[in-house]
């Protein structure tokens, strides 16, 4: 084993890229869950975003347009979920699972003519001097715009939740929808907006996979990342700052285990692969001791009875 062959600078830099799709999807789901809705369809929305973003980017030659359309596609799909759960009052767990099934099928159908094509490449940001700073420059300042957008989104969401009135209302809806309703807030409309935002974020995360990280389109290419994003929200105890930390940890476990393997360390891959999930469970247990916990109305249906 030769651990010296692992270059920490490159390891950290690739961590940032590996974590980005997770970060987008998890931040979107965080808002959804903060509004008291559990949408298990993240995987379905991600892959729909992946395929739509890919198709639009290939047809138009513009990755930016691809990302925008991926957001729209993810949001549109999530509105199906919103319609079912908020208007038709269907069960959220079942609706979310149905959304994933539907999204996987739909994306495969849409993407049939796009297998084996290369997308237009997404340019790296030229941050000039910053990239030349030793160590930090390579780790932090040599990425494409989306990496920074994801981080900015986390900060924006933190600000929104804790420093704005709208954020307060959103949290109120998630904690006690009956009280929020009694105060005159439109619970259903707020949740519609939150779900659509979550869908858009998942769509962008998916498109980051198909346009930057992989980059190509193949059926089923999200391969479970949507589910990891769900775990990540819990791991982060519904806090945007911890989502960043978690995304790097979750994305990092995989990159790290590959690095250790390449360095010749004989590691039990399966046990390492299950570690993020075990850690998440542990975090849930620890969290129960402190005050942070799941939004009280999470997953419960809301029906205005008067």
């Amino acid at each position: 084993m030769d651990l010296s062959s692992i270059n920490p600078v490159l390891l950290l830099a690739s961590l940032m890229v590996a974590a980005t799709p997770l970060l987008f999807a998890a931040l979107g789901e965080l808002i959804v869950e903060r509004a008291g809705v559990l949408n298990l369809g993240v995987e379905g929305m991600m892959i729909t975003g992946a395929v739509s973003g890919f198709i639009i980017a290939v047809e138009s030659g513009s990755p930016a347009l691809g990302f925008i359309c991926a957001a729209i596609a993810g949001a549109l799909l999530s509105l199906l979920f919103a319609l079912l759960t908020q208007v038709f009052l269907a069960n959220q767990v079942a609706s979310g699972l149905a959304l994933t099934l539907f999204g996987l099928g739909l994306s495969a159908l849409l993407g049939q003519g796009y297998v084996g094509i290369k997308p237009p490449s997404t340019p790296k940001l030229d941050l000039g001097m910053l990239a030349d700073i030793p160590f930090i420059g390579r780790v932090l300042f040599t990425h494409d715009l989306m990496v920074y957008l994801a981080l900015a989104l986390a900060i924006a969401i933190w600000f929104f939740l804790h420093r704005t009135r709208a954020g307060l209302i959103l949290r109120g809806v998630g904690e006690n929808h009956d009280a929020a309703h009694a105060l005159g807030y439109k619970v259903v409309m707020i949740r519609f907006a939150a779900i659509a935002f979550g869908g858009a974020c998942a769509g962008v995360g998916g498109a980051y996979l198909s346009l930057v990280r992989v980059p190509q389109w193949t059926e089923g290419m999200t391969a479970g990342i949507g589910w990891i994003a769900l775990a990540l929200v819990v791991f982060a105890s519904w806090k945007p700052g911890r989502v960043i930390l978690g995304a790097y940890l979750f994305g990092g476990v995989n990159v790290l285990q590959l690095n250790l393997q390449a360095a010749g360390a004989a590691i039990p891959v399966e046990y390492l692969a299950m570690s993020p999930y075990l850690v998440t469970i542990l975090v849930l247990v620890i969290m129960s001791a402190e005050r942070s916990r799941a939004p009280a109305s999470l997953g419960r249906p809301f029906h205005a009875s008067h």
Binding site: L10, V214, A223
Partner: peptide
């Protein structure tokens, strides 16, 4: 694809 991309990047690094 995502995992294979990671594996290739790690080896290159």
């Amino acid at each position: 694809p995502a995992k294979e991309a990671d594996a290739a990047k790690v080896l290159i690094e």
